[in-house]
Nucleic acid binder design. Structure first.
Lengths: 202, 202
DNA sequence: GAATTTTGTTGAACGTGTTTAATGTTTTTG
DNA sequence: CAAAAACATTAAACACGTTCAACAAAATTC
């Protein structure tokens, strides 16, 4: 019953991943050295790099799946209209993931926003899915008559994502305690409409 | 005529700064080592760190002033109404600074968004000044009757800044050629107003 | 003006992430 | 089953940013 090389590889990978997650959560990303992770996983530092390419990619590996799960949950949330409430629920669900790990989220945000391929694509895809979900909800709202039929759902979704990242960055910089509320307030302002043209014009 | 210690210090600092700027522009931030800068400035690596604290702070020092100048220029731009045109002019002026140095801007954006003190405050202050300028322009627009008097100028400014950073990040990730246009389009949508309440209600 | 303190400068050294050459074992090939 | 290829693993080495002890020279003190 000698374990095959593939099995051993997978076990080693998993061991390193768990050791890394533990070290990162306990000490933070920067304070954790590759050698720390290696000795916690009882392998050499070279082996850690061999399996994951770099320390940064190890960070991605530890956090991406969790974020993916959270995102999927958020997108499958079935909140009842109006649109504002639906978006709020989504925002809150996703942000709760970040708020639970302030230190790691900060570095994840920093590194994921400026990742190289193939991670850049993966993170971009997550954002694209969020964008798509908001667009779909906006479409529903238009069909309900809650939004004017001339609204561009794609633009609305882009505005949401802008507010989303702004709030996330403001929070990561220590500026806001409740980023979800910030998104909510900004989105409400956006939906309310600002131009006086509608009140004075035809 | 032995130069005083203060003078010598200033000269050394300036020499290092110029060497660093040259290296960063030529090779990029990550590809430039502290030792490269040191030998270009004909000092030791330790001296470079002694003067600037860290390689990252040297990056801030090389780029912050330029950005500061650009920002000040943008804020003192006197474009004629409507508000949208005024904001577009500002956006374009600032973004032209980034677009001129794509590689360095990318790393500056990354590092400045997540800087530690005292740089964090400085960059936050720049954003705050941008925010303030937009708020003032929005106030003018309200007094002109261009915007509804119920509009919250601070919220409008926050929306602008959100679009601003979203476009900048999208550009830095290689997604958009013309981030200024992206801001313009999003801001136009925001000003136009989205809710059908205004057409059906009141 | 001598003694003392301050401080700009340096080269060596530290810990870092990553690379590399060598090794032993598993898998594949013939 | 033997020969060959593939590959996970490691220790040593590398370049990196940064720290440090030592030094020399300028500034300060008395």
């Amino acid at each position: 019953m000698t374990p095959s090389r593939d099995e051993k590889k997978k076990i080693t990978r998993q061991t390193i991943l768990e050791a890394a997650r533990a070290c990162f959560e306990a000490e933070g990303y920067e304070a954790t050295s590759v050698r720390d992770i290696a000795s916690a996983a009882e392998v050499s530092a070279g082996s850690v790099i061999h399996h994951f390419g770099s320390k940064r990619e190890l960070l991605y590996a530890t956090l991406f799946e969790d974020l993916e799960t959270t995102m999927r949950e958020a997108l499958s949330l079935c909140t009842s209209p109006p649109l504002g409430a639906q978006l709020d629920a989504m925002t809150r669900h996703i942000f709760s993931y970040y708020l639970r790990r302030p230190r790691l989220s900060r570095v994840l945000l920093k590194e994921s926003l400026f990742a190289e391929e193939p991670w850049a694509s993966r993170f971009r895809e997550q954002t694209a899915r969020l964008h798509g979900a908001v667009e779909a909800l906006a479409g529903d709202a238009m069909r309900r008559g809650e939004l004017s039929p001339v609204v561009d759902a794609r633009m609305l979704a882009m505005a949401y994502v802008s507010f989303y990242y702004f709030a996330l960055l403001a929070w990561a910089q220590g500026g806001h305690e409740d980023p979800a509320r910030l998104v909510s307030v900004q989105m409400a302002q956006h939906l309310r409409g600002l131009s006086s043209a509608r009140t004075t014009g035809g």
